[in-house]
Design a protein around this nucleic acid. Structure first.
Lengths: 209, 209
DNA sequence: AAAACCCGACCGATCGGTCGGTAGGAGGAG
DNA sequence: CTCCTCCTACCGACCGATCGGTCGGGTTTT
């Protein structure tokens, strides 16, 4: 797990987060990922950090303020990082590979936060910050669709429905947290590499193969 | 939504569930799916059913007893139904199509329960019933792997890693609940059909196409 | 001394769950 | 027919525990 501070979205924060704030966010993130937002009490988080609940509330105004930077930050950072990892001059298949492998690397670096973000997404009662998050997600999906469209135009891909193909790709990717074992033999990026191969070539044996 | 009673797993129940029990399970299922198990109080469920909380506890011993038949029933029924829908004599590609489309139809029939099952799966603290559910899930995954292996043997499929291919297929399928709109233009089975086409043929344009 | 950090104790609200008791239909006895 | 009993479904009120959040005051750092 890389440094969580790199991806947090502190919004109205005055400066960079303190050590204590980072500790709280890190522990809370892990707990939220394994037991869900409602399944974790503020007392649990404080205890895991070795501080009192009152102290936790000295650093964060309320429970939502712990969740927000995680979820918002992940959604934004994933898009920005994947966007930056796609080689501009490459052919579409190569771009798709970069999309998949960089997403996997990001997932590997920030696994807990990634899980929190994807599970909280649709159970979240907060409609206000929801819109902002959906904007980043839409931008991310548009990035993938752009790659696929470019492939269709260049003749590299043959796709009937771009949106459907995008959902296929994202489904395979977003389902990874449910079964991926960080102690397993393959790093996430290698798995994404395999996914890329199967997605582009298909599972069916070609006549010319 | 088909009749929920067809898929419930009542375990030690004396007879078929009463109307009231079905109502409670149906309303609870919808609430669990939209707000999560911990996000729904027993009072919420009772109110949605137009009864008092005490009455709800007359029909169910505790909150877990409402969740259990839903989650266990879905996991078991999905496998049994998909298993029964796969034509024994057909070629592997056709079997894979049946696997995908029947899964989609099941999801369409029992959408809320399907969502509850997939979200609760890994946040569930109950280890006892967890094992039984995992057995059904493993059986389901083995069914898919069997189809893929048969395809590789017959030469219909060319797959490097069966397990990885299975996760690719299940990922695309299990991610559907997150974006599928029942009021949308396409039924879930048609979407599964498209997925099947893309998965087998691949997104890349063939040389001979 | 000022500011940042920390804590024990407490708050009202809500949680899952229990209690004693009621309304009403079924059924047997007189 | 009436009377009594039993049973199921139902409810208002309540329980201890825990929830998110607050408060006044203590300690440490600058």
């Amino acid at each position: 797990m890389k440094n969580l501070a790199d991806i947090l979205d502190l919004e109205g924060a005055a400066g960079p987060p303190t050590e204590r704030m980072l500790q709280i966010l890190t522990e809370a993130c892990r707990l939220f990922a394994t037991r869900g937002f409602d399944g974790v009490s503020v007392r649990d988080i404080a205890q895991e950090c070795g501080i009192s609940k009152a102290t936790l509330y000295h650093h964060f105004p309320d429970k939502d303020a712990i969740l927000r930077p995680l979820v918002m930050g992940i959604t934004r950072s994933l898009h920005q990082r994947v966007l930056g990892a796609i080689p501009s001059g490459a052919d579409p298949a190569e771009k798709l590979r970069a999309f998949l492998t960089e997403s996997a690397r990001f997932f590997e670096d920030y696994r807990w936060a990634f899980i929190v973000s994807s599970t909280v997404f649709w159970t979240d009662p907060q409609a206000r910050q929801r819109r902002q998050r959906i904007e980043w997600r839409d931008r991310h999906e548009a990035l993938l669709r752009g790659i696929l469209e470019e492939g269709v135009r260049s003749g590299a891909f043959r796709i009937a429905d771009i949106g459907m193909a995008g959902r296929l790709v994202l489904g395979a990717l977003n389902w990874m947290p449910k079964w991926y074992d960080p102690k397993g033999p393959l790093p996430a990026s290698a798995i994404a590499e395999q996914f890329h191969g199967m997605l582009v070539a298909g599972l069916g044996a070609k006549p010319g193969g």
